Simulated assay, not measured.
Amino acid sequence: MDWQQWHDAYDTPESPLARRLLTVQDRIREALDACPPGPLRVISLCAGQARDLLGVLPSHTRRDDVHARLVELDPQNTDLAASAARSAGLHQIETVTADAALLDHYAGLAPADLVLICGLFGNITDQDIERTIDACAQLTRTGGRVIWTRHRKTPDRVPLICRWFEERGFAGEWLTGEGQLQSVGVHRFDGRPAPLQLGVRVFEFVGYEKLRAPGSTD
């Protein structure tokens, strides 16, 4: 898969991914608006080109408060994200070319005010979705938010994802309607963050096409 080319769908205004991006950006704005005064921490897993966060921060009033870490395995995408951040004068944006599944990459920034998990849940198994949500209790501060996405194709895992978050002390704040193919959710963490488990990998990136292949159970 050419993950840089994959992002081209965002440039087609009526595509499902483009509409999803706008929704995620709206939720990011609201999450930043709701954060308390002072420095803010943002973590993005499998950040890609970070069009979600970098599409919001340049014009947001909290832009200079945000220290963000974008973790993405594809070096072309991290280069593009880093260039976009520099061009916008966002000097507290870290782009890390690495495996986002390894919790070590969030040390020093977790627990964060905002955790972005966009474009991941449709590419990993159900077991790894639950493991990633479990890790969110390490990545998110009390009162912080997770913004996540998942398609609603059969089997629709969105209700299960919401249940997994709620079982771990997260309260559902917002969810796209059932009629939307690309679902976006926002969960607020009301629990106490657990210590970050260094050396732990929480998912294996399988890929949407493999997961949807005949015989797959996820």
Rank of each mutant, 00 (worst) to 15 (best):
R86P: 00
R163G: 13
P39M: 04
A137E: 05
D11G: 06
G119N: 02
V24L: 09
T95L: 07
R27N: 08
G177T: 05
Q138D: 03
Q182E: 15
R168Y: 03
T140Q: 00
S59C: 09
L53V: 06
P39D: 13
S59K: 11
T125E: 13
V146G: 12
G119H: 04
R212A: 14
Q180Y: 03
Q92P: 01
E30D: 10
D218M: 11
Y208K: 09
G48Q: 04
V24Q: 05
A112L: 07
V71N: 12
R86Y: 01
R152I: 11
G185M: 04
D64W: 03
L54Y: 02
A135Q: 02
I133E: 01
F205L: 09
G89I: 07
G177L: 02
H67S: 15
L54C: 10
G119R: 08
L109T: 11
S44L: 06
A18Q: 04
V96M: 10
A135I: 11
D65L: 07
S83Y: 01
W3P: 10
K153G: 15
R63I: 06
G108H: 08
A31D: 08
W174M: 09
D33M: 03
F189S: 13
A110R: 08
A84F: 02
P195E: 05
R157T: 12
R63N: 06
R157G: 13
H105R: 13
P58D: 11
H60P: 15
L45G: 06
S87D: 14
A85Q: 05
I161R: 03
S87A: 15
L181Y: 06
D104E: 11
H151D: 14
S216N: 13
G48E: 08
Q49Y: 01
G177D: 08
P75G: 05
P155R: 09
V200I: 12
C162E: 14
A112G: 06
R192P: 00
L139E: 04
S83D: 10
E94I: 04
R62K: 14
T125K: 07
C162W: 00
I133C: 10
V186Q: 03
E204I: 10
L53W: 01
K210E: 12
W174S: 06
P195G: 07
Q180H: 06
R62L: 07
H7P: 00
W174Q: 08
T78M: 03
D99I: 01
W6H: 15
A85V: 06
G144N: 03
R62D: 07
L53C: 07
S87K: 05
G55M: 12
H67V: 06
I124K: 03
L53I: 07
A34T: 11
T23S: 07
Q180T: 12
P111D: 00
G122P: 04
N123F: 00
A107H: 10
T78C: 12
K210V: 05
R201D: 07
R63S: 14
L40R: 08
S83Q: 10
Q138A: 11
L45N: 02
G177P: 13
N123C: 05
E167C: 12
R86D: 15
D79H: 09
V206E: 10
T125N: 00
R29I: 01
T97V: 14
G169T: 02
C35L: 13
F170K: 08
D113L: 09
F189R: 01
N123Q: 14
A213P: 00
D26C: 05
P159N: 12
V42R: 08
D2Q: 07
